[in-house]
């Protein structure tokens, strides 16, 4: 399962990178979104998969899966949500202001 997950993470990274290299803003945002999914799965895989029951003490399991990666991912999911939201609104605003969502045309001023 870990090997399969490793390949899945690699594929998600590949597609995410391809999207980030695109010109349209929406594609870039979708790309970051996919990459963050990949990162979450990567962290989870690193902790070992299905090594025990859910990390809930009330269930009286003898062993639990690693809880630390889960805590890290939980933080990451929320932060990622914040970043995506900000990014979306920023692109909306930028499009309104500049009139394009093409990164090739957003180049700043010559004297910057």
């Amino acid at each position: 399962m870990e090997t399969l997950m490793s390949f899945l993470v690699g594929i998600l990274f590949m597609i995410g990178t391809y999207l980030i290299l695109a010109k349209g803003l929406l594609r870039i945002i979708l790309g970051t979104s996919i990459i963050s999914h990949a990162v979450h799965l990567l962290i989870l895989t690193m902790g070992g998969l299905k090594t025990g029951g859910p990390p809930l003490l009330g269930l009286k399991n003898t062993s639990y899966t690693d809880a630390l990666p889960q805590a890290l991912i939980l933080t990451a999911i929320v932060i990622n949500f914040a970043v995506t939201a900000l990014f979306l609104v920023l692109s909306y605003r930028a499009y309104k202001l500049v009139g394009t969502d093409d990164m090739g045309q957003m180049r700043g001023n010559a004297d910057e």
């Binding site: 490793s6 993470v9 590949m14 391809y18 290299l21 690193m46």
Partner: peptide, 21 residues
């Protein structure tokens, strides 16, 4: 170029994930 780079990233990440595991 985009394709080559994204494949490169994908391969590297896969190798890292496998090796780390």
């Amino acid at each position: 170029t985009n394709l080559i780079i994204s494949i490169g990233v994908g391969v590297i990440v896969t190798i890292i994930a496998l090796s780390a595991n």
